[in-house]
Simulated assay, not measured.
Amino acid sequence: MKGPIGIFDSGYGGLTVFKSIAARLPGYSYLYFGDNGRAPYGDRSFETVYLYTWECVQWMFAQGCPLVILACNTASAKALRSIQQNELQTYYPENRVLGVIRPTAETIGNFTQTGSVGVLGTRGTVRSASYPIEIAKFFPDVAVSQQSCPLWVPLIENNEHESAGADYFVKKYLDELLDGRPEIDTLLLACTHYPLLIPKIDQYLPAGIRLVSQGAIVASSLEDYLLRHPEIASRIDCSMQQQFFTTGDAPSFEEHASAFFGQAIHAIAVNGFKK
């Protein structure tokens, strides 16, 4: 039996990745699952993020998803490797789980002319050092500087990202990253929420610095993956359905989702996920 491609995030941010994937690969069916009832993941421990992520991935497998994309940098940093190396091999050897960090690391070096990249992310992603580690595998000569932006996700999820109050924290984190680092010419938004702040970021970004978000990169990587793995592609439903689920409140999810996904959606609440 064929099933949809699963796209997972701790909340709404993964919808920006889903939007890019659906635009590039419109012929597939998709199931989006946001763990809003337990979000945010950014400051949670490795153990907690792993347990929450694996629980959600198993639920998505139970809905028939043969392939799940962790469209969440924190989950990709703290849970993906363990799931791939341990749980999948033991319990779901025919299914696959992919993340957003590796495809980004494989391409980010192509954007920089100076060989210096800045990474903006949650505390969890920054502390994991996943980006410096992964980028070094593909671009060992690229220098990576990181900056955690702990207030950006709360601003976005409380619909304050367009307010005047958001300017202070956008400028603050950009200044902290770029101060004393004039060589940086590329900034990576290493959180799928952050594209909603691009208009604000652009106001304070010095000329000559390129801003990179992950949606198009992940979508291109997924297209390539499915071409290289026809055994997975053949198990994906092509009726072009889109389903949305959340562990939080469905009406609240629907209200916020349109800002991330670009259109109104209908969500279904899923119960039984304990904090």
Rank of each mutant, 00 (worst) to 15 (best):
W54K: 14
F33N: 04
T112A: 10
I69T: 08
D43G: 08
S82I: 10
T104H: 02
S45Y: 11
L67Q: 07
Y41K: 10
Y30G: 07
N36M: 12
A39M: 14
L67E: 14
S128W: 01
S45A: 10
G64I: 00
M60I: 06
Q85Y: 03
G109E: 12
G37M: 02
T107D: 05
Y91M: 11
G124V: 06
F18A: 15
E87F: 04
R38V: 15
W59G: 04
N95A: 03
N73H: 12
S116F: 14
S82H: 14
A71E: 13
T112C: 12
F46I: 09
Y92D: 07
G64L: 00
T114M: 10
V17C: 12
N86C: 01
K78G: 04
R44Q: 13
K78H: 11
Q89R: 13
N36F: 04
G99I: 01
S116I: 03
G27A: 10
V17I: 15
F18V: 01
P40Y: 09
S116C: 15
A79W: 01
V57Y: 09
N86A: 02
I108S: 09
D35M: 07
T107E: 15
I83E: 10
S20D: 15
A129M: 06
T53Y: 08
Q85D: 14
P66V: 14
R102A: 14
A129E: 13
R38A: 15
A79M: 01
G64D: 00
A23T: 03
A23W: 00
T122K: 03
Q58N: 05
N36A: 14
A71N: 09
V126T: 08
C65T: 09
T74C: 14
A105F: 06
G124I: 08
Y28K: 05
G118C: 07
R24G: 00
Q58Y: 00
N95W: 01
T74V: 12
I108Q: 08
G37N: 02
V117N: 05
T53W: 08
T104A: 15
D43P: 05
G115A: 08
S76G: 07
S20C: 05
W59N: 09
P93Y: 07
P40I: 07
P103H: 08
V126Y: 03
E55D: 14
P26Y: 11
T125K: 03
G121S: 15
T125D: 07
T112R: 08
R44H: 13
S82D: 15
N86V: 03
